[in-house]
Amino acid sequence: MAPDLRRPFPLGPRGFVLAGLGVAGIWAALYLGLQPSDLTPSTGGLSLARDFFARAFSPALSSEAAYVPDGTPGLLALSLRAAVTTVVYAAAAMSVALVLGIVLGFCASTAWWSGDPLGGRTWFGRTVAPVIYGATRVLIGFMRSVHEVLWAVLFLAAVGLTPLAAVVAIAIPYAGTLAKIFSEMVDEAPREASHALRAAGASGMQQFAFGLVPRALPDMIAYAFYRFECALRSSAVLGFFGYETLGREIEQSFVSTNYGEVWTHLYVLLALVLVFDAWSGRLRARLAR
């Protein structure tokens, strides 16, 4: 293809971004001092990898520990109990995050304020509303910028190990993320219905609630389901910090080199995520229709 002579630079903006990515990738590899040869495990690592992956198709069905005290539940019971705890933490966190996410998301959307839900041309709309809008956006950014594991580490240091702290740790960044995405979805929803309502004399609040939100709702529901799937993973990972979720079982079994048990717990986690993935995938397809 002949070069486009109107362009002063041989790369378009997109090519520029791609080239930048290549340079960034090379810089990162050099900065970390990474060699592809480091990818071959050391002798110890190699035998460990062999032992570990050998058990992939023969996960343990009962405890592999040399000594099992009387009264300990069986491996499968243990794994299932950890799975239930994983789901419970994720669901509790999600229930908080959803409520917060909707409230903050609406406050952080321009449609909520420009649709004059509280009368944008009043004194309130000109002074207080922009402050609430801006403050909400800053708050969302703050909640999102700390990872749920770091929130958990902070709460561990501040108040100690309590299940409620795990729930709050997941709920804070998730509420921020939900709020950000919800506000974008409401702002990008088609406006015709809301305009028609305004022409019919609906108030700002009515336009927002009955014109805009129903258009964005299918996307919002689909995204909430996707985030629940993420919450399951986050909840499992918190097990590494002392909570009784699947992560703890995985860590303990791996550290005591009971690799068959590790695979059992991994498969339970995989099943959990896959079931939810299939459920939310089907729901997304239904809602898109």
């Binding site: 480091d38 990898a49 570990f52 993973r233 992560g247 991994l266 995989l270 995520v273 993935d277």
Partner: peptide
Amino acid sequence: LIVQRSMPEYILAFLLLAMLRTPAWPAV
């Protein structure tokens, strides 16, 4: 693809760390 995305990064890194003893590759 679905198995790749079902596994939390933290657990993947935890497992890889035991096999690759370089500070950055397991995370990457």
